[in-house]
């Protein structure tokens, strides 16, 4: 049963990711990416990472992708101008190099030591994540708020009329 779920949603994620590249209009790419993020959340649930699955849907699919679709609709972008570009040959170099890269990753991951440490089953509940975040990782967490503040100011500055 779990295997069926895994295969279905892994195939859904990979198919939606391929569809992101295949679509000509970038709005359909963004919608397809939302589908991929939802499928990834199911994979996170299967890994017992409940909190990550939740914030993946809420923050990623809910906030970041809404920002993307908002900008795409705001700009009213014309269709992708592929084909006529002089850099089209990048496709013929990029795909073999990418496949070679995949081969390297899989060859490395194949040798991952499958030994399981003698620890109890981990459940990534919000409680566990919050406790770790506010004890061991307090300084990075605070630095994160600084990063968000700087990004906020940067976005405001960039969006000014007379850049």
């Amino acid at each position: 049963m779990v295997q069926i779920l895994f295969f279905f949603f892994a195939a859904l994620a990979v198919g939606a990711a391929i569809n992101v590249l295949a679509q000509k209009h970038v709005l359909y790419s963004a919608l397809s990416l939302i589908l991929m993020l939802t499928a990834m959340s199911v994979l996170f649930v299967l890994l017992r990472a409940d909190f990550i699955a939740m914030i993946n849907v809420i923050v990623y699919a809910g906030a970041i992708m809404v920002l993307f679709t908002f900008v795409i609709m705001l700009l009213n972008i014309p269709r992708d101008e592929d084909g006529a570009d002089r850099l089209r040959w990048l496709k013929f170099i990029g795909i073999p190099l990418g496949l070679f890269f995949l081969f390297l990753i899989v060859a490395t991951l194949w040798n991952v030591d499958p030994v399981r440490l003698a620890q109890p089953e981990l459940v990534g509940s919000p409680q566990a994540i919050g406790r770790s975040l506010f004890t061991d990782y307090l300084l990075p967490f605070e630095a994160t708020s600084l990063l968000i503040l700087i990004a906020l100011m940067g976005a405001v500055v960039f969006a000014k009329k007379d850049l």
């Binding site: 990979v14 992101v20 590249l21 990416l33 496709k91």
Partner: peptide, 28 residues
């Protein structure tokens, strides 16, 4: 699955020329 998805993202970064599509590839 993670490696395949990463590959798709890298390929998208190579192939696409629209800058929003490049950002979407980074998200992948």
């Amino acid at each position: 699955v993670g490696a395949v998805l990463f590959l798709i993202g890298v390929l998208g970064f190579f192939i696409k020329r629209n800058i929003i599509a490049l950002l979407l590839s980074v998200e992948i």
